[in-house]
Nucleic acid binder design. Structure first.
Lengths: 153, 153
DNA sequence: TCACGTAAGTTTACATGGAAACTATATCGC
DNA sequence: GCGATATAGTTTCCATGTAAACTTACGTGA
């Protein structure tokens, strides 16, 4: 992790390498998504809605690990692009419900293929065993730290 | 990496896990650095200067993988905090030289210990062998994609 | 039933970083 | 030497996210 001696170097930290690779993977993915005029955050948002049919913004905030404010703005953008629909909740005057529009639902599989291709382009340099080990390590850390990829309850 | 069937899930992508863990590691580190009123980007900046004595902003941009504009603004902030010094280059009227101030140099070891502790808190849940494997995998990807942690030439 | 505390969303104020335009200075080719 | 081009840094504009204030609506307890 870090040298024992004096002042550790940037590259001594696994966090450094994680950040370096992660930022590059995300940036490269963002470039691919540009073709569909969608951002990485929007992809997460749309994919999260894909298998639940409808979801409250606050739940989405939890799932995505973002603030409600950020979800509010993301929703505005996706609404403007007609990729989602937002409706008032009849039971609760405060609550809203978000769902994919037909256009949004149709787009998700295409975005998923872009995600597949991006993942492959980076992690394809690793053997299957290395990929599995990487996944295990990351999941282990996520689990031990209670990181949210929180299932929609 | 991704399921063969229909629409891949978020968690199918290693990029998803990488981003999840990386963002959490960085955020946690940022919290620790708050005690010293320094950001993660500023830590990188200061640590990069630590062993070279002086460096041009444009070099730093390359090393840090940021734009010159970002470095310019980072420099302004670090100057305001008196952690670095900036001087005009005598040979070249366009060029500047950045170096740590005494205060900045004194701070780096403290920040390094915070980085060590943060890394330990996340990656300590992995065995030495797992940590080594993670490092190898990340370095392999970085190398194959020419990601910059570019040594100062 | 109504006052108070809580919850859902939105909005505002900030912070930060990229892209591209802009300024000043070098350097190259002739 | 000088015009064209490139380079160093800065600045402006924009996008995006957090934190916290704010608005509205619930729910609960006496």
């Amino acid at each position: 992790m870090a040298r024992k001696t004096s002042v550790s170097e940037l590259t001594d930290h696994l966090g450094y390498w994680l950040r370096l690779v992660s930022n590059n993977v995300s940036t490269a993915f963002a470039r691919r998504l540009e073709a569909e005029e969608v951002t990485v955050a929007e992809w997460f948002f749309l994919r999260a809605l894909f298998d639940v049919d409808e979801l409250a913004p606050s739940k989405l905030a939890t799932v995505m690990g973002m603030t409600r404010g950020a979800i509010s703005k993301l929703s505005d953008r996706l609404l403007a692009k007609r990729l989602i629909e937002r409706s008032d909740n009849l039971d609760d005057g405060r609550a809203h419900t978000l769902r994919l529009s037909g256009k949004g639902r149709a787009l998700v599989p295409k975005l998923a293929r872009l995600a597949d291709a991006n993942d492959e382009s980076f992690f394809g340099v690793l053997s299957s065993e290395e990929q599995a080990a990487l996944r295990r390590a990351l999941e282990k850390i996520a689990k031990r730290h209670g990181l949210n990829h929180t299932p929609v309850d």
